[in-house]
Design a protein around this nucleic acid. Structure first.
Lengths: 207, 207
DNA sequence: CCTACCGATCGGTAGG
DNA sequence: CCTACCGATCGGTAGG
């Protein structure tokens, strides 16, 4: 897939706009950061796989960290949007939490590379950026916590602490990035259905 | 806590056996690997915090990776032992899975530093060691999968794929290392109780 | 367990 | 977007 681009020996790549290039750098960096981690991936690695040299990257990004930030930032953006939309949507609190878990898990499984980088490497951003990321993440976990608390109040949801509940439910969904194998036996849709059913009903089969 | 040891300026530390030193290096490395990550922690950082110099570490470990391996290995050892003991113990499959989740979560919360290093940094070991780790981890997830399948067969447990079920339940428990704050509002015991109750019953309150 | 040091890697820049 | 290069960091070793 990385080889789809023009080989170095053919000379300069033609027909790519600057935006394409930027996107391409992000895509390749995402693959490599996922495979080897942020520190173990050099800018030479990224440039090599694309077919140019390291300084070219500096034409599109100010620093290596900026590349990581671009990846991490887009993940948070999408998640935030998703949470807002669903939380404001129709349905009881429990139904909206279900929808949230379905969509969140589905998105992770559909975009495993970037989500893996997000969950594994976001801690390596500069302190200021990490603070900003945490803040935006807290934004959407709070959306879910309010929703959960509402459901507890109406008696629809199990009475546990909303912080614990939402961290646990989201954690179970997020953890897929560590074990799900797209080449494996189970389709993403099956996995999403089973996880969300398990979380909704519990592993003890109702009598 | 790292300052409990003798300061450099007081000269050589007295009254520590080699085993103490080794343990001390592991302890300090665990703290630093957790705070800053494996790559961002230099051997000088570790030595500094203890109060000696880098080459001293090589008296106790062959390489930096060996320090990480010592941490990661002990976590897997304990988990494996725990899973074996509980799986072979008394109770229905569902009861044993409950016990497993309780104990696993409790252990993580009681030893957050080392478990954080385990889950965040184990991927940075050499390919051979990573393979070995994966193999031993698979060993205990398979124990849980067999238990789950048994419970599905007897009708005690919700009928979802045992791989999905165990990954999800364990993931929910493990995820605590990312959000639990020992200085926070909730005690570890409360969190363990609420998480395991949530997973057992599901977030939808039974009518 | 220390001082002194080497070799390699790598992010980033100059200058074009 | 390239060639050439700098400066800093760091794991690891020599020799004691």
């Amino acid at each position: 897939m990385a080889e789809a681009t023009t080989d170095k020996r053919q000379g300069h790549t033609r027909g790519r706009t600057g935006n394409d290039r930027r996107t391409q750098i992000i895509k390749v960096a995402t693959e490599l950061f996922r495979e080897k981690g942020y520190y173990a991936t050099s800018l030479d690695d990224i440039a090599d796989r694309i077919g140019f040299t390291k300084p070219a990257i500096y034409y599109y990004f100010k620093s290596k960290e900026d590349v990581l930030f671009a990846i991490v930032n887009s993940i948070v953006d999408e998640a935030l949007e998703r949470f807002h939309a669903i939380a404001a949507g129709p349905g009881s609190p429990g139904e909206r939490i279900h929808a949230l878990l379905v969509e969140h898990t589905r998105t992770i499984l559909r975009n495993l590379d970037a989500n893996t980088v997000f969950y594994n490497e976001r801690g390596l951003l500069s302190p200021e950026r990490e603070r900003e990321m945490r803040k935006r993440e807290r934004e959407y976990t709070e959306i879910m916590q309010r929703l959960y608390a509402e459901g507890v109040a109406t008696g629809e949801l199990l009475d546990v602490d909303p912080t614990v509940a939402t961290a646990t439910l989201l954690g179970a969904a997020i953890w897929t990035y560590r074990w799900y194998d797209p080449e494996g036996r189970l389709s993403a849709d099956e996995v999403v259905e089973q996880i969300t059913r398990l979380l909704l009903n519990g592993y003890r089969r109702p009598a």
